[in-house]
């Protein structure tokens, strides 16, 4: 129960980080959204056995998070949470793909393990970039940026409501789970049997609560558009930001930055 409450507060913290002021925070949201999109597309575009070439891409999340003064430990914890999901996606690769890929002394690494590690690494990079984007921009501004970039309003408003619904659902879920836990006296209660009605109730309660919130929004003149106090335009700074990062991503996509660095250190370039 406490973990549900804690998880919600932790997620809300991400939005609060976005209210800070830094070089990255001050950039127009569209620039950050575009750069993150280019980053994600580049990272995903590698072939499935690529592993080492992905490492240099950490430069983007690390630089953005540090310029945006995001707490590193917090972001790392958030990313660690999604690694198990990535592992589930890739866990069958080592079983089906047993082709020998690299041999390090007695250790033989198959293609399956490489592609599984690659999936995890890509998840860490892309999910990390998305978290950092929200942390330096705010979910509301990300949606506004998407809209200004041409995404239909219906879609962005749905996205915002969905995001808001996560909080409503988890808050109500935490209450229901607390009530169940307190009355099951430390035992399992009625076990699985009690979860059916619990989930049904949860749906109805969150629905009613969401309606009340919607009512409060309508009462304050909501017409399907969210506004932000941040006024920014897409200027030269933003153009340089997008172009600069995109150039870095393209170079890192064409050249294996990790190998290049290795050759540089070992003198292989001369």
């Amino acid at each position: 129960m406490r973990s549900i409450d804690g998880a919600v507060l932790d997620l809300k913290r991400l939005d609060l980080l976005a209210t800070a002021d830094s070089v990255i925070h001050r950039l127009d949201a569209r620039a950050k959204v575009l750069t993150t999109l280019v980053f994600i597309v580049t990272v995903v575009s590698f072939n499935r056995y690529e592993f080492t070439a992905l490492f240099p891409f950490f430069i983007y999340p690390v630089v953005t998070a540090s310029l945006g003064n995001l707490p590193g430990g917090y972001i790392v914890r958030k990313i660690i949470m999604v690694i198990p999901f990535a592992f589930v996606v890739g866990m069958l690769n080592p079983i089906f793909d047993r082709e020998l890929f690299v041999r390090i002394g007695p250790l033989a690494i198959t293609g399956g393990w490489i592609s599984c590690a690659s999936i995890i690494l890509r998840t860490v990079l892309t999910v990390g970039a998305a978290f950092i984007l929200v942390g330096v921009t705010g979910f509301l501004s990300v949606c506004q940026a998407l809209e200004r970039l041409g995404t239909p309003r219906t879609f962005t408003v749905q996205l915002l409501f969905l995001y808001r619904y996560i909080f409503v659902l988890t808050e109500e879920g935490a209450r229901a789970s607390r009530a169940r836990e307190l009355r099951s006296c430390g035992r399992k209660g009625l076990g699985l049997a009690s979860f059916g009605p619990l989930i049904g109730h949860l749906l109805i309660r969150t629905w009613l609560r969401a309606e009340r919130i919607h009512m409060a929004m309508l009462a304050r003149g909501f017409t399907g558009e969210f506004h932000s106090r941040q006024v920014s335009g897409f200027g030269w700074r933003e153009l340089f930001y997008v172009a600069g990062w995109s150039a870095v991503f393209v170079v890192l996509r064409m050249e294996n930055g990790a190998q290049w660095l290795g050759r540089l250190v070992t003198g292989g370039l001369s």
């Binding site: 609060l16 705010g138 509301l140 009340r212 929004m217 017409t223 558009e225 506004h227 106090r229």
Partner: peptide
């Protein structure tokens, strides 16, 4: 809806933005 300002019983239903500023600014922006 502008003329009639409605304050709900449960303040948690009324406050839905990330900060107090954003919440108070929600109406005027609209």
């Amino acid at each position: 809806r502008r003329t009639v300002g409605m304050v709900f019983q449960d303040a948690d239903d009324q406050l839905f933005m990330p900060t107090v500023f954003d919440d108070v600014a929600f109406g005027p922006f609209n």
